[in-house]
């Protein structure tokens, strides 16, 4: 039998790249930056870039594993509480004379345990992640506040706190971005260039079909919740050093900002769709818009309203795009040659 070949893609590369959701978000970031550069005083300063990135680092970090969790169709609302718990723990241990390195390591281990607890309840007990992580959101935050009470630990060694805000040369880019880039590359390879990552998409699109193809759905979900736990703890350490303050109520409400950025970056809340480059652009888009508006003297409340509207619009546009492509697909199928007429083979 002669081998039939198939075109790999329905559309050429440029079209797939330029008409993707990710391209739209990246384009928005670029356009707003360029507009701000020429129209808003101080927007072009390296200091603006530095503060923008320093402020967004926590969200950037947590958005990486959160994207994977949301693509499987689950959600983790406990991340900000893990940030708080990690922060409180670092403060408490440091206060009790444990070295900084050991304190940070302990915080990471606790983050892992927090994530594993979420993951166990979701994957192996079979509870809905929305309910589980609403519960652990309160639980972990409660423990965090319980550890330090209303006090804050601030006497961290300056060597460590300075490190959190250093800048690479004259670029204005904070050194911590190197850590983020390394993690981003790891997560991109994991999601987009590994069998494990394909399994994540399969689970989000059809968990049952994934299971029938041999994907270990439970183990995958458990691992992803462990990832969000560990990375949230890491973000908690950064948060503590960056502001030089360990508090149990650090980063309260951050989980919603992370999820908003992930959705803005093109990830479907129903799972199965979305890409990490889009998510990174989504976080940056929020950062660029807020800092541009802030420099223009717009108040925080108005900024929140604008970002909220943007999110609603972006979700709406996804639905509209899906509907349009569905109609187009149905049309082209209607034109396709009809099926083998019934009865031909039974002669």
């Amino acid at each position: 039998m002669s081998e039939k070949t198939y075109p790999a893609y329905a559309h050429p590369l440029w079209r797939r790249l330029l008409l993707s959701r990710e391209a739209a978000v990246i384009a928005l970031v670029v356009i707003i930056s360029m507009w701000g550069y020429s129209n808003i005083p101080y927007f072009g300063d390296t200091l603006t870039l530095t503060y923008l990135l320093l402020d967004m680092t926590t969200i950037l970090l947590i958005a990486l594993p959160m994207t994977l969790v949301i693509i499987t169709g689950e959600i983790d609302l406990s991340v900000a509480s893990v940030v708080g718990l990690s922060s409180a723990l670092v403060g408490l241990l440091h206060e009790h004379g444990l070295g900084m390195a050991a304190s940070c390591l302990a915080a990471l281990v606790v983050g892992l345990v927090c994530g594993a607890f979420n993951g166990f309840l979701v994957a192996y007990v079979g509870l809905p992640s929305l309910a589980v992580t609403i519960g652990t959101l309160a639980l972990y935050r409660g423990i965090a506040v319980g550890l330090l009470g209303t006090t804050a630990v601030t006497d961290f060694p300056t060597g460590w706190t300075d490190q959190a805000a250093t800048i690479i040369g004259a670029t204005g880019i904070p050194t911590v971005m190197i850590l983020f880039l390394v993690l981003a590359v790891v997560f991109i390879l994991l999601l987009h260039f590994s069998p494990f990552g394909r399994g994540i998409y399969d689970i989000g699109l059809s968990s049952e079909a994934a299971q029938f193809s041999g994907v270990d759905v439970k183990r995958t979900k458990l691992l992803l919740f462990v990832f969000t736990g560990v990375v949230s703890a890491l973000a908690g350490i950064y948060f503590t050093l960056r502001y030089g303050s360990a508090r149990g109520d650090n980063a309260t409400g951050l989980e919603l900002q992370v999820i908003a950025a992930v959705l803005l970056g093109g990830v479907s809340i129903f799972g199965g769709r979305g890409k990490l480059p889009g998510v990174i652009a989504g976080v940056l888009l929020i950062g660029v818009i807020s800092s541009a508006l802030r420099l223009e003297g717009v108040t925080v409340n108005v900024i929140n309203i604008i970002i909220g509207l943007l999110l609603v619009l972006s979700v709406l546009s996804t639905s509209v795009l899906a509907w349009v492509s569905d109609v187009a697909a149905r049309r082209s199928r209607g034109k396709a040659p009809s099926q083998t007429p019934a009865g031909v083979a039974s002669q």
């Binding site: 198939y6 790999a8 069998p195 394909r198 998409y201 399969d202 699109l205 059809s206 049952e208 079909a209 994934a210 029938f212 193809s213 041999g214 994907v215 199965g272």
Partner: peptide, 19 residues
């Protein structure tokens, strides 16, 4: 429901076990 990830592509589906 079980045989295919219907929203996945032809290539993704055929490669699902061997990937």
């Amino acid at each position: 429901q079980q045989g295919l990830v219907t929203d996945g592509s032809v290539a993704e589906n055929i490669a699902a076990v061997i990937r």
